[in-house]
Amino acid sequence: MIEIDWKIFEIKHAKATEAFENLCYFLFCRKYNLAEGVRTDFNQVGLETEPIKDSNSKYCGFQAKFFQKNINYANISESINRALNNYSQLNHIIIYINQQAQTSCQSAKQIEAKCRKKGVIVEWFLPNNFKISLN
């Protein structure tokens, strides 16, 4: 199994954040069998692309966050707030993060609670998920 080293990723990609967002976009498209991709706009509000309608008629979107050191939960929360405020039909958000998150910490729980109030399920996609998806 190939280990993912995010420091090497940064070295190989001069624009590591942009490269990470592209990687997450491809994984999102693969997950939902979107062979032709997803509509995207410049400066998408709260999400990386427009939400897609899945096979169960649920609207799904994603946010990609590349952190060099510590996870900034306030940054994630701000993006999620914008997504919740701008996409009332949203049912599911995948949060792709390159660092190991503590999804049981108070900040992560607050993000999940805020989403739950709007009927949105949060899926955390963390380093172990990348390891499985990319190997």
Rank of each mutant, 00 (worst) to 15 (best):
E21M: 13
N56G: 00
N75S: 15
D5W: 05
L134R: 10
E36I: 07
K117F: 08
C29M: 12
K118L: 06
Y32C: 00
L134W: 08
K58Y: 12
M1Y: 03
L27A: 06
Y32P: 10
S133C: 06
S55M: 04
N22S: 14
A108F: 00
L90R: 08
K118C: 08
W6K: 05
Q44G: 03
I95S: 01
A83L: 03
S133T: 01
K117G: 08
I93H: 02
E112I: 13
V122I: 15
S55L: 09
F9Y: 02
A14S: 04
I121L: 10
F42I: 10
A74G: 09
K118V: 03
A101Q: 08
F62K: 04
L134F: 06
V122N: 11
A14D: 06
N81K: 15
I11D: 04
E36Q: 07
E78M: 14
V45F: 14
A113T: 13
A83C: 03
H92W: 02
Y59W: 13
C29F: 07
L84H: 05
Y87L: 07
L27D: 14
V120D: 01
F66P: 04
A19K: 15
F130S: 12
G61H: 05
A74K: 14
R39N: 09
N75E: 14
N22E: 14
S104I: 11
N135Q: 09
Q44D: 08
I111L: 00
E36K: 04
A101W: 01
Q100N: 08
N22V: 09
N128V: 06
T103D: 04
F130M: 11
I80A: 04
I97K: 04
D41S: 15
Q102G: 03
E3F: 13
N129Q: 00
I4Y: 04
N85L: 15
I132Q: 13
E18F: 09
E18W: 10
K131M: 10
L34Q: 13
Q102F: 09
L47I: 01
N75D: 15
L23F: 06
Y87G: 06
I80V: 14
S133F: 00
I132D: 12
P127M: 07
F130L: 13
F9L: 02
H13K: 00
C24F: 02
I76C: 04
R116T: 12
F20A: 14
S79R: 03
N56E: 12
Y32N: 07
Q110A: 14
I11A: 00
V122S: 06
F130C: 14
C24N: 06
Y87I: 06
T17S: 10
E123R: 07
F9A: 07
Y32G: 05
R82I: 04
S55N: 13
E112F: 08
L90E: 06
K118Y: 09
W124V: 02
I111C: 01
F28E: 11
K131E: 11
I52Y: 12
F9M: 01
